[in-house]
Design a protein around this nucleic acid. Structure first.
Lengths: 258, 258
DNA sequence: CGTTTAGTTGAGCATGCTCAACGGTCGTGG
DNA sequence: CCACGACCGTTGAGCATGCTCAACTAAACG
């Protein structure tokens, strides 16, 4: 569908469009459209030429990559996230495959429109640069998480991140299937099970998708969350509260762009 | 030193300054200066506030990070590379520590100057976005390299990348100490030794820093280099030959920015 | 009901790490 | 000039983390 004005107004307040002028906004999304995809749809394969910037508005999307019959998950996105921004800016091929995990609603913006708007409006271009920088730092965090922590530590920190995001309650709900979570955390489903068992000593009990964290301090002592890796610490916001704009999310369950 | 005009003219042609106007260039590097550092100097620790964009002109710099008494190398930079660009754009704290590996010459540009120039000149801002996008994609490649390949495969691909960069000769020279190389490839020095031994079957012989690749096809069969991971494939350049600008380097021995 | 799929549990294995010892090289200082 | 020490690189032995493969359970779905 060719993007109704009401949708446009909604999108207007998302991501790096917030700060743009009406004229730039119209230019940037010229030719854009909203589309719904069922679960399991491959939006883009690594190596494909990228014609659109994708903005996930509903559902969830997995970014992954493969080599020699191996596959790995690089990120899982939830709304509102852009993806493959970097490839769009460079007009280059995708480095990651994007697949919907659930029925998803996605705004597709022609790369050419976005690049033109960037080149004509420095304010807007700077906002896109901020978005790109946030994506970059999300990746750096993700690498540090994987190279410096073992699988149990990654799970512990993931649980604490979810806790912070879900309001600090004693019980959290896992937002993904455990197999997907395992892949996101860089382990096999078998090892995720075993990691949960190990965390029983830190007061973690599991019942399906519901996880209770009874001894948060013990869990934190093992997890040692750090603002230089995890992204669930209080975000500095400027006076207007319009986020300065590194994202709330980090990359583990965060955002990406190829 | 406060950046002599001759140096400025030299820098003028580097990185994302190439396409900028004189006025923007002057604005961007206002207050910048050139500085030399001995080997082993810590330029920046993770968590520090970032006041300058760094541009490496001579020498080499390691970007690393630590957690709970573990440390890891994220990238090794060679000239000409920017680093911590993303932190500068967001005016945020550094996520990585930067240390000189050799005596190095580095241009330091005040973040405020750079940001102001970006906000006033859309062309320039777009060029910085392209740089950021290249950094981002370098990181994606690095993650894929680490998650999809074992240590021997990473070494094999590293050797092929060096071969391509050094002109395809039968003998290449390792540009770093083996301990540094090991860290870059995500393994211990001990395992790097053993990985070299394994590659003897593929015609790889080592004599100090000099490595001979006698059976390149056998090595390639094991390494299976891919344009979606490695960055040593022919770069598409536009008619003007002015690189479209994803970098020649990739991130393994490439570029980064926090 | 049978079938399928997610999740768990166990056994064995592989990759990579730690720790220790040793050889070689280089730079310093006697 | 030589002796010593520091450090890089290599090699070996043992260990740990995480993976594979297989069996089994439970819930979902036709």
């Amino acid at each position: 569908m060719p993007l109704r004005p009401t949708d446009a107004e909604h999108i207007r307040h998302l991501s790096f469009f917030r700060a743009s002028t009406d004229a730039t906004f119209d230019k940037a999304i010229a030719g854009g459209f909203l589309q719904k995809f069922p679960a399991g749809t491959t939006l883009l394969m690594e190596g494909d030429t990228v014609d659109f910037l994708y903005i996930l508005l509903e559902g969830s999307v997995e970014l992954g990559a493969g080599w020699k019959s191996k596959d790995t998950t690089l990120a899982i996105l939830r709304p509102v996230s852009t993806f493959i921004l970097a490839a769009v800016v460079l007009d280059a091929d995708a480095l990651m495959t994007a697949v919907t995990l659930e029925r998803s609603e996605i705004l597709m913006v022609p790369g050419e429109s976005l690049r033109r708007a960037m080149k004509e409006d420095a304010e807007f271009c700077f906002a896109v640069s901020e978005e790109l920088s946030g994506c970059y730092r999300g990746l750096v965090r993700s690498i540090k998480n994987h190279k410096l922590r073992d699988s149990t530590e990654r799970l512990a920190n993931y649980l604490l991140t979810q806790r912070a995001r879900q309001g600090g309650k004693i019980e959290i709900v896992l937002p993904h299937e455990k197999r997907v979570l395992a892949s996101l955390l860089g382990m096999t489903p078998e090892n995720l099970s075993r990691a949960f068992l190990k965390l029983q000593a830190q007061g973690v009990t599991v019942d399906g998708a519901r996880v209770r964290l009874e001894k948060v301090t013990a869990l934190e002592r093992l997890a040692r969350p750090s603002p230089l890796i995890d992204n669930h610490f209080a975000q500095p916001r400027n006076e207007l509260g319009k986020a300065h704009t590194e994202r709330q999310k980090g990359l583990l369950d965060g955002k990406g762009s190829a």
